[in-house]
Design a protein around this nucleic acid. Structure first.
Lengths: 361, 361
DNA sequence: CTGAAAGCGCTTACAG
DNA sequence: CTGAAAGCGCTTACAG
């Protein structure tokens, strides 16, 4: 009796199976089905037989066996904090760039999610145990004693908050972004410009403060100390808290006419605190953010912000990491700096009339 | 001359290396270092020697070799559209749940990013080639002819937009969420409630419309056809476009007092269109969304929405997928339905005074 | 143009 | 309690 389906094995077909059905060796099947390079060695007739057999047997390469033989997982890791509210947009943009480039190079991407860099730095090491060929660190804030990373794994960082020895960092010209933003506000006619800075001790926030100060100095404007606040984190809640507290403490004082915030999250928090105090953006105060995250476009009013090419940075990280894995990169390759760009939206405008006062209670 | 560092090999240490240094077999080293189960067979003294040798040699298991021997990659795949603006928040919540559960089970998570389900369905199949043990489909909208998925890979779907044979679907009671939301608006005193529906032909949007209609019917309120709009997609732009067009077409007509939108993105778009027309939320119109995404909390005013336990759903997907991989799940396991919950914020309030009219030009 | 052999580094029975 | 052998499915020299 004919049993056409019966010879389909319970386990997935291997190259040996394909070879057997096609009447050739497993090696020939390998050349045709998996090895692009050597496949030219096989005659067209044989190749056709092999392809046919593979189709019938539903052959699929075994990724593990291939990885073992090639000493290469074809898998890149991405380590990031992705459960914090404010990192989300940032991460997704970067991640989309990583995924696109990884797919273009036929690499898998596996994600290692940290709760925070301080506590999870050690866990990170266990991730470098051979399941990935290299690792991209997204906005790492590694404690100094963990900065020396496992030498057997190639790393690339994006927006690292401290230097990591031997790791190429992909960053942006944040100081310039802040400078251009504040310069624009000044060009609009603003003279009292507040800055709500990000958490202290990190490279990014510090660069943004520097750009802010430099722009004021360039316009020969003073920087009153009471106009520089610090938010505890990049989260909306903390921006809200910083702004609200300042408004309480300065009831009756002159309001700034513009507020430049260290990121969009803080800016949105500040807008919420201003709304609570009965102040309107941009009529009473202009507000600007940084990152041009999705949040900047969905908040009402839409937020003027500083765009960073996050997606392109994610893709570049993949390119550099692959080059490093293949030892095509000199050990001392310098950092890569991407440009930034001010994006104007409705949350900023030239000041209206005379300076306003902070509403009292 | 003493050369303590010299015997460190260029290639990573293997179990055989560890065994050699410790004076035992590779198998004993395997039992101690990798196999939790069988490790009890080794004496404490030997175990200590092996551990010491592994430390000195910086032994790390080779993931590929282990996967090959175990016939198991210990890797789960996640397939989703993640470059569309509006899926981002939704995806990240689900993904965080997936990552947490995967980490708890010591599984890696690799992401397969689709541009859209229609075009990439075939590419999806190549992803099921042995590099993953199973795949989670996030909000799939597979064309009917692709609904039959490769039989060698176990699947779980979340919020599937059409039935997939043999795939357990994790979903929420969307109809009830819509019903409860509209019921709440009615309880606030709203009588003219608009609905901006999501894209047609998908399960989710249809369920939300049904809940809306059922709530109106339950309150014996009519559903004027002109109060049900359809947004082309879940994106903010399309919500904006739908609302704006309606406002233009209905200048001078009575405004609804509340608008229930099929998701937060559409709701935010609607709020932007209302703002453009000089209408204020919630004083002139209440607006409610669905999903309770991060966007709902960062938009101004913060959005009343329907929360779905996305994170928990992501975790559950991992649990079910692992059970299916281990053949611990009967083939005909039914869908899993999670509850939803209305979250009230400032974008909704009881109507103020008499009905307003749509501003003319 | 094609094949037989060895090896990637691990684990799982099977012996002792 | 411990070890020698075989095998997971692929690829890479090396022969013919």
């Amino acid at each position: 009796m004919p049993t056409p389906k019966k010879n389909r094995p319970a386990r997935p077909a291997t190259l040996a199976d394909v070879g057997r059905v096609a009447g050739v060796s497993a090696m020939a099947a390998s050349a045709v089905l998996n090895g692009a390079r050597t496949s030219s060695r096989i005659s067209d007739e044989t190749r056709a037989r092999i392809l046919k057999a593979a189709g019938e047997l539903e052959y699929r390469p075994n990724a593990a066996a291939r990885a073992l033989a090639n000493r290469r997982m074809d898998t890149l890791g991405v380590a990031a904090v992705i459960d914090g509210a404010e990192v989300n947009h940032y991460f997704l943009d970067v991640f989309n760039g990583v995924l696109a480039a990884a797919a273009a190079h036929e690499q898998n991407t596996t994600v290692f999610s940290l709760h925070n860099w301080g506590d999870d730095a050690r866990r990170l090491r266990t991730f470098c145990d051979g399941r990935i060929d290299g690792l991209i660190l997204v906005a790492p804030t590694l404690p100094a004693e963990e900065a020396v990373l496992p030498s057997h794994t190639p790393f690339i960082s994006i927006h690292a908050n401290a230097r990591l020895p031997g790791v190429i960092n992909i960053e942006t010209d944040e100081e310039r972004g802040a400078f251009e933003m504040v310069k624009l506000l000044i060009a609009h006619g603003h003279r009292r410009v507040m800055h709500i800075a990000g958490p202290t001790g990190q490279l990014g926030p510090e660069r943004r403060v520097r750009g802010y100060r430099r722009a004021l100095a360039a316009a020969k404007l003073p920087t009153p100390p009471e106009l520089v606040l610090v938010s505890k984190s990049f989260a909306t809640e903390d921006g809200f808290a910083a702004m609200r507290e300042w408004l309480r403490a300065h009831a009756g004082d002159r309001l700034p006419t513009a507020i430049f915030c260290a990121n969009d999250g803080i800016a949105i928090g500040a807008m919420q605190a201003l709304a609570e105090a009965g102040l309107r953006v941009p009529d009473d105060v202009s507000v600007a953010g940084f990152d041009d995250s999705l949040a900047a476009r969905i908040c009402v009013p839409q937020l003027t912000s500083v765009r960073q090419p996050l997606r392109a940075m994610g893709s570049r990280a993949v390119e550099l990491l692959l080059a490093r894995i293949d030892h095509k990169l000199p050990a001392s390759t310098p950092s890569v700096v991407f440009p930034v760009e001010v994006v104007s939206r409705v949350s900023t405008r030239p000041p209206l009339g005379p300076d306003r006062l902070v509403p009292g209670r």
